[in-house]
Amino acid sequence: MSDTSTAPVGAPVSGDDKHLRILSTTDLAGIDISLADVVATVEGAYRTLHGGLSDNPRKLTVKPRDGHSVSYAMLGRDGSREVVAIKTSYKHGLDKGREEQHYYTSLTIYDDVTGLPVAMMDCSRIGSLRTPAVSALLARECAAPGARTALVIGTGTQGRLALPFLLTTLPDLDRLMLFGTHAEGITAVREQLHTHFPERELEIVTDLRAAAADADVIVATAGGHTPAAVEADWLRPGALSILVGHGLAPSTLHQADRVIATSEAQMNVTGTDMADADGKLPAVDSEFPPVLAGVSAGRRSAEERIFAYNSGLVVTDIALGHRFAQLALAQGLGTEVALWQ
């Protein structure tokens, strides 16, 4: 894929005060962007946030009592790109199988210099890239020295690019394992790996305990119905466990030697399924932005078992969404809607 990372962060985008440019799923699917560009964009968003230039308030959550759906709203500002955006996310059918669920997410971006709208876009591809990029950055900063083996749990949207992104930041990984329960998902993971790293092979594992015991890095991306639940005493010394969705038992968090979170506040909102018998979560040793900035240690020793919580921050969606908007507008993609007239 082409490397487009040389485009300036603040490259201007078009807009006026009457129209809103809509970027559809199809528009965004046709944009060529390298994994390295995605990683660099996401890392830049974290560094800008740590520098105090961006704002990332706590997300708002709405969930009915029976738990059949969940909705999120996230507002933020990227200080290096000087844009403001709001992301919304709605998932229905949490009590049903994957094929019966409905999921919608969108991102609306405004230029905070001109005051004009930039674009409104489907945020599914943004999320499918941003999240594994964050996991890859967590792995780069927190994996034990000489890490060679990775295990991905889950074959859904977040699992399919987990290994290509891990190889982008940890190219010395030489054993790539996958635990999944959906044949079509396993095929999709294999296809994505071969698209980005055609020389690498995927090992499908069925004995999760044995695979976890061999893994230096575990990325758990499975859905809520997964049978997977890696326990702390399965892990080797020095193991890094990254939780994105499901697949790790609460013991991996509560018995970890060090806990890193992209946001402790968000972990306390969205990580309640990892609480102990008293409904409590342990304190976070460090959030991730200061780790990336070199202010806080991601790892203090090669033997530490580290738990990392990847909840995603809206500033990373904003940065990557703005990057996509730059590329889309340069190619003339999207539909302008006369929304305010």
Rank of each mutant, 00 (worst) to 15 (best):
T6M: 08
P12K: 14
S14Q: 13
H19E: 08
R21V: 11
L23N: 06
D27Y: 11
G30K: 15
S34V: 04
A36S: 15
T41A: 00
A45H: 04
G51Y: 11
D55Q: 15
N56V: 12
N56T: 10
N56P: 02
R58D: 07
V62P: 05
D66P: 01
D66K: 11
H68K: 12
H68P: 03
S71M: 13
M74I: 09
L75D: 09
L75N: 11
R81L: 13
A85G: 14
I86W: 08
Y90G: 07
G93I: 15
Q101Y: 08
H102Y: 06
T108L: 12
G115D: 03
M121T: 08
D122A: 09
L129D: 09
V134D: 04
P145T: 13
A147Y: 13
R148F: 05
A150N: 10
L151M: 03
I153H: 00
G154W: 01
G154Y: 01
T155M: 01
T155Y: 01
Q158W: 12
A162K: 04
L163Y: 05
L163Q: 10
L163M: 13
T169H: 08
L170T: 11
P171Y: 14
D172S: 13
L173W: 12
L176W: 07
L176P: 02
M177F: 12
H194R: 15
F197W: 13
R200H: 07
E203N: 07
E203F: 08
L208C: 00
A211N: 01
I218E: 04
V219A: 06
V219P: 02
H225M: 09
A229F: 04
A232D: 09
P237C: 07
P237I: 09
G238E: 12
L240K: 12
S241D: 08
L243Y: 07
L243S: 14
V244I: 14
L248Q: 07
L248E: 05
L248N: 05
A249N: 11
T252W: 05
A256K: 12
R258L: 03
I260V: 14
T262V: 15
S263V: 10
M267A: 03
N268R: 15
V269H: 04
A277W: 09
G279Q: 05
A283G: 11
P290V: 11
V291F: 08
V291Q: 04
V291M: 08
L292K: 03
L292H: 02
G294S: 10
A297Q: 12
G298K: 05
E304V: 09
L313S: 05
T316F: 07
R323Y: 00
A325E: 04
Q326R: 13
L329R: 13
G332L: 02
G332K: 01
G332I: 06
L333G: 01
L333P: 00
T335M: 02
